Computed example of a mutant assay.
Amino acid sequence: MRHHLLAVAMLAALAGPAVAQSVAELSDEALLARVAAATEAQDADALLDAMGEVRTRSLLMFAGPQVCEAPVPDTAFWENEFFAGAAEKAYLVEAREAAMAAGSCGCVYEALPFAGFFEETFGKRPAELTDADYGRIRSYRRPDWSSVEQQYRAFREERCGDD
Rank of each mutant, 00 (worst) to 15 (best):
M1T: 14
H3L: 13
L5S: 10
M10A: 11
M10H: 09
L11F: 08
A12T: 15
A13Y: 07
A13N: 15
L14A: 05
L14P: 02
G16L: 12
A18F: 08
Q21V: 13
S22K: 13
S22P: 05
V23T: 15
A24E: 14
A24W: 07
E25F: 05
S27W: 12
S27V: 06
L31T: 08
L31P: 08
L31R: 14
L31N: 05
R34G: 00
R34E: 12
R34V: 08
V35G: 03
V35C: 11
A36L: 07
A37R: 13
A38K: 07
T39V: 06
Q42Y: 02
D45F: 06
A50L: 13
M51Q: 13
T56K: 14
T56E: 14
S58Q: 13
L60F: 07
M61H: 11
M61S: 04
A63S: 11
P65A: 11
Q66W: 01
V67C: 03
V67S: 14
C68R: 08
C68Y: 15
E69M: 13
P71V: 12
V72I: 13
D74E: 11
D74H: 04
T75N: 08
T75I: 12
T75P: 11
A76L: 05
A76Y: 14
E79P: 04
E81G: 05
E81Q: 07
F82V: 14
G85S: 04
A86Q: 06
E88I: 07
A90M: 02
L92C: 06
E94G: 00
E97S: 06
A98F: 02
M100D: 06
A101P: 02
A102P: 04
A102K: 13
G103M: 12
S104A: 09
C107Y: 02
C107G: 09
V108I: 12
E110G: 07
E110Y: 04
L112V: 03
F114V: 02
A115W: 00
G116H: 01
F117D: 01
F118T: 02
E119H: 00
T121N: 01
F122C: 00
R125L: 15
A127I: 02
E128F: 01
D133W: 01
R138W: 09
S139I: 00
R142C: 00
P143T: 05
P143W: 04
P143F: 10
V148A: 06
E149C: 02
E149L: 10
E149H: 06
Y152K: 01
R153F: 13
E158I: 11
E158F: 02
C160R: 09
D163L: 14
D163Y: 08
